[in-house]
C-alpha cells in the first residue's frame, strides 16, 4: 500500500504533472505570441529566459523532469490498464459511451512526445550547443530570426500543426480530467470545466496561428 503503488495516487501524480505542464504551456505561449506582436519584446523575453540562472538551472531541469515523469507515468498507466483486460471484446463500441479524446490519451500523448523530440532537436539542442558547448556570446537579437527561420519549411509547419491538433484532444480530456482526479467536484466545477475546454482549444490554436503567421509572412509576396 502507499502512495506509489495505489492507482489513485498514480493518477493524482499524473494529474499534477499535467497541470504543471499546462501552466508551462501558457507561459511558453505568451512568449511565442509576443513574436507576432513585437519582435523586440520576443527577443527581450527570450533572452531573459535563455540567460537567467534561475530559469536555466532550476526551472528548466524541473520542467524536463516534469515532462519525463508525465510521459513515463502515462506509459506505465497505459500498460497497467491494458493488463486489466486480458481478453478483449470481439465487438467493442467505445464511441457509444465516451469521447475519442478520452480513450486515446496514449495516442495523442505519443504524438506530442514525437513532436517534442522534433522540437528539442529544432530549438533546444541548438540552443544548448550555442550557449554551453560553443560558448558563444549572448546576443539578444538572434532569437526572432531563428524562430522565423524554423517556420520556413512547410513540412515542419505541417508536423507542428498536426501535433497541436492532437494537443487539443489531449488537453480537451486531460485538463478537465485532472480536477476530477484530484477530487475537485463542487459548485465551481462547471466553470472550471468550461475554462479547461476553452484553454484546450485556444492555446494550441494560438500556437498553430503563430506557426502559420511566420510561415506565410516570409513567403515572397
Amino acid at each position: 500500500m502507499g502512495i506509489v503503488s495505489s492507482s489513485i495516487a498514480r493518477k493524482v501524480a499524473m494529474a499534477l504533472s499535467g497541470l504543471f505542464l499546462v501552466v508551462f504551456l501558457a507561459q511558453h505561449f505568451t512568449i511565442n505570441f509576443s513574436s507576432v506582436v513585437s519582435p523586440d519584446t520576443f527577443n527581450e523575453w527570450s533572452h531573459f529566459m535563455g540567460t537567467n540562472g534561475l530559469v536555466q538551472f532550476a526551472l528548466q531541469p524541473v520542467l524536463i523532469l516534469g515532462i519525463i515523469f508525465h510521459f513515463v507515468m502515462g506509459i506505465i498507466l497505459e500498460i497497467k490498464n491494458n493488463r486489466a483486460r486480458v481478453h478483449s471484446y470481439k465487438k467493442y463500441r467505445g464511441s457509444a459511451n465516451s469521447s475519442w479524446a478520452s480513450r486515446n490519451m496514449i495516442i495523442s500523448g505519443l504524438v506530442i512526445l514525437a513532436f517534442l523530440g522534433l522540437h528539442f532537436y529544432d530549438f533546444w539542442v541548438p540552443e544548448i550547443i550555442y550557449k554551453y558547448v560553443d560558448v558563444n556570446e549572448a546576443m539578444e537579437s538572434r532569437y526572432y530570426p531563428e524562430l522565423v527561420h524554423k517556420f520556413e519549411s512547410p513540412v515542419r509547419v505541417g508536423l507542428y500543426c498536426l501535433a497541436f491538433v492532437l494537443l487539443i484532444f489531449h488537453l480537451w480530456h486531460g485538463f478537465a480530467s485532472s480536477f476530477q482526479t484530484m477530487g475537485w467536484n463542487n459548485k465551481y466545477s462547471k466553470a472550471i470545466k468550461g475554462f479547461t475546454k476553452f484553454y484546450a482549444v485556444a492555446i494550441p490554436v494560438g500556437f498553430i496561428f503563430i506557426a502559420l503567421y511566420h510561415h506565410f509572412n516570409q513567403l515572397p509576396h
Binding site: 498507466l77 483486460r85 469521447s99 478520452s102 482526479t181
Partner: peptide, 24 residues
C-alpha cells in the same frame, strides 16, 4: 484506504475519467 487497496489488488485498471462507466 482499505477498499481502494483491495480494488487495486484485484487487478482492476485505473480510472482515466472517460465517463463510459456512468453512461452504461
Amino acid at each position: 484506504l482499505n477498499m481502494v487497496n483491495q480494488m487495486d489488488k484485484e487487478g482492476f485498471g485505473a480510472c482515466s475519467n472517460t465517463g463510459a462507466c456512468y453512461i452504461e
